[in-house]
């Protein structure tokens, strides 16, 4: 149970960062921290006590394997996370070019 709680704390750390930081890049880093806490959680729920890597070995027919599906999910989610982060970073570079700052308090054309 402890590991799950640690995962959740990591999620909260990321959330805290995303809410309190003023720098755009730091917000993205906080988002990534949250993302990885969720990935960690997904990887943990697939763990089976004493299980080995899920590659079928013909020599050991009754071996115990960990659940491979969450691992596949994490891999897919990592790819998606890569795309989102890259997209965010390119937007930040564009924002920097237009506004000459990365401070979120100075980037507020839209309101109301």
């Amino acid at each position: 149970m402890t590991v799950y709680i640690l995962c959740f704390i990591l999620f909260l750390v990321g959330l805290y960062g995303a809410i309190t930081r003023r720098n755009l890049v730091k917000i993205v880093i906080s988002l990534s921290v949250m993302e990885f806490s969720v990935f960690l959680f997904l990887a943990l729920i697939g763990y089976v006590e004493g299980g080995s890597a899920p590659i079928i070995d013909p020599a050991k027919p009754d071996a115990l394997y960990v659940d491979p599906l969450p691992q596949a999910m994490v891999l897919t989610a990592i790819v998606i996370g890569l795309a989102t982060t890259a997209m965010l970073m390119s937007v930040i570079i564009r924002i920097y070019r237009k506004y000459k700052t990365l401070d979120i308090r100075e980037i507020k054309n839209l309101r109301g």
Binding site: L24, I27, M34, I80, T84, N109, L110
Partner: peptide
């Protein structure tokens, strides 16, 4: 404005996906 809007949209959208 579009860049600012898309940044906001992406951060909240990313949070939603998480």
């Amino acid at each position: 404005e579009q860049l600012e809007a898309t940044f906001k949209y992406q951060v909240l959208g990313g949070l939603a996906s998480l």
